[in-house]
Design a protein around this nucleic acid. Sequence first.
DNA 1: TTAAACTCCGTATGGCGTACGGAAAAACGT
DNA 2: ACGTTTTTCCGTACGCCATACGGAGTTTAA
Lengths: 257, 257
Amino acid sequence: MEKADLDRTMNLLWRRTLGTPQGSRGPRQRVSVDEVIRAGIAVADAEGLPAFSMRKVADRLGLKLMSIYTYVPGRSELIGLMVDEVVGEVPHPALTGSLRERLTVAAGHLWDEFHRHPWLLQVEASRPWIGPNGSARYEWQLSAVEAVGLTDLEMDQVTTVINDFTAGAARSSILARRAAEESGISDAEWWEATAPVLERVMTPGAYPLSGRVGTAAGQEYNAVGDPARSFRFGLERLLDGVEALLRDRPSAAEGHV
Amino acid sequence: MEKADLDRTMNLLWRRTLGTPQGSRGPRQRVSVDEVIRAGIAVADAEGLPAFSMRKVADRLGLKLMSIYTYVPGRSELIGLMVDEVVGEVPHPALTGSLRERLTVAAGHLWDEFHRHPWLLQVEASRPWIGPNGSARYEWQLSAVEAVGLTDLEMDQVTTVINDFTAGAARSSILARRAAEESGISDAEWWEATAPVLERVMTPGAYPLSGRVGTAAGQEYNAVGDPARSFRFGLERLLDGVEALLRDRPSAAEGHV
DNA sequence: TTAAACTCCGTATGGCGTACGGAAAAACGT
DNA sequence: ACGTTTTTCCGTACGCCATACGGAGTTTAA
C-alpha cells in the first residue's frame, strides 16, 4: 500500500466530518463515493467477498471498470470504506438497564450485523481502518461497561471478549447457513455420496460420544447444532462469568481505578 | 461441486482407513497425495489462503500445474484435505484433572493450532468435510465434558462455545499479528498519514472512553489490546460461567440425561 | 498382442486487479 | 477571451488465477 493511498482513504473515511474538498477542476463525477460504497456493499451482500470485484461494482453503477479508481484507491481500500459504512448503518440502540441487559443488547447488535453482511467476517485488512463509525462503535461498547466496577483494562477486555465470541459464533452460524443454502449439491446427493464411506469407516463404537451427542447422523437438527441457540447459550455463560467477576468486589460503585 | 468429486474427496479423506485402492493401470504417480497435501499446507502457511494457488503447489512438487488435478479434484477439495491433515497434526493431549483444566487444555490446543496455521480461519467450505481427524477432534472435545452433569445438548453447546470463542479470539490475534508484520507500510509511515486526519477529526471529548481506555493513542500497547491476554481473560470468564451452570445442580455425578 | 486405464501436461477460456496513457471536459490564471 | 491545468472516464495491456479438454506416452489386464 502506498502512503498516498492511505491518506486518501482516511480522508474518504472521514469525508462527512471533513467536508468535500471542493474546487475540483475536471468534469463532474457521474456518481458519488457513497454510491460506489453502497454498490460495493450490494455486490458483497449478494455474492460474498471472494466474488466481489471492481468490475461488478462498475457494472452496477453503469461505469466502466477503470473509472472506479477515480473514486477509490483500490479494492482493499473500498472494502475498508464498506466496512465502516455498514458499521454506521443501524444506529446504536440506547444502553439501559443492568450490565447484563446492556451487554446482551451490544452482542445482539453485532450478531445481527454479521448476519446482515456475512462478508464482514471475510475481511482481512492488514491494517485496521480507523473510521468514524468504527470509532463510535468502540465508544458505544465501552459505555456499556462503564462505571460498573471494572478497571480500564478490564473494560477493554470485556468488550473484546463479547466481540470475539460473537464473531466466532456468527462465523459458525453463517457457515452453516451457507452449507444449507448454496452448496451446489442437494442434501440428498450429499448424503448419498457421504454415507457409504462413513458406514465403512465409522465402525460401531469408534465415536461413542459423537454418536450419542452429535449431529453426525443428522438427527435432532433443530436442537443440537442450532447456531442461534448456541450463541444465546454461550452468551449467558459469558455474562455469568462477567457478573461473577464483579461480585464480592470492594468498590463496586467506584468505577475505574 | 460434482457428486463424483465429493465421493472421490471422501475416499481421499479416509484414505488411511480405507487403504489404497490398488490396481492402477497407468504410469506410477511421481508423488503421493500426502505430499500434495503437505505441499499445500506449506504454501498456505507461508502465504495465506488468498495467495494459495494450484500453481504454487505444483511448483513446489516439481510438477506442472495440471498434474495436480490427477491427485485431487480441485482447489477447494485440496483445502478440505489440508484442514483435516493439520487437525491430526498434533496428537490430542490426554484430558485429566478438573473440568476447568480439561477445557483449558482443549481451548489452548485450538488456539495453538490456529496460530500455527492462520489460514484455517480463512477456510470457507460450503459443505463441511467429514474427515477422520475432524471426527476424532469432536469426540475428544466431547470427552472433556462427559459425565460432569451436563445434558447431551449442553455438552454440544459447551464445546461449541469454547470453539467459537477460541476461533474469534484467535482471529483477532492473527489479524493483529498481520498488521504488525506484513502491512507493506511501516508503523511510522502509517501514523504519519493517519495522525493528521485523526487530530482534525477527533475533537477533544468526542470519544472520552476510547481516549481513556483504548489503544487509539498507541499507549500501553502491552496491556490493552494484547490478544493472548484477552483470550485468557475471556476463557476464565467463560469457564466461570460453565461452572456456575453446574453448581447447585441436583445430580452432579449422574451425567447426561 | 491388443485394449483399457491412467499420468502428465500443453493449450485455451474466461475471470481477476491494476498500471499506463489518451481524449474530453471543466475551471482557473491571465 | 484564451490557453493551461486539473480531473474524469475509459481502452488497452500485463500477469495472475482455476479449470475444461484432449493428446501423448506408460503401465497393466485381458
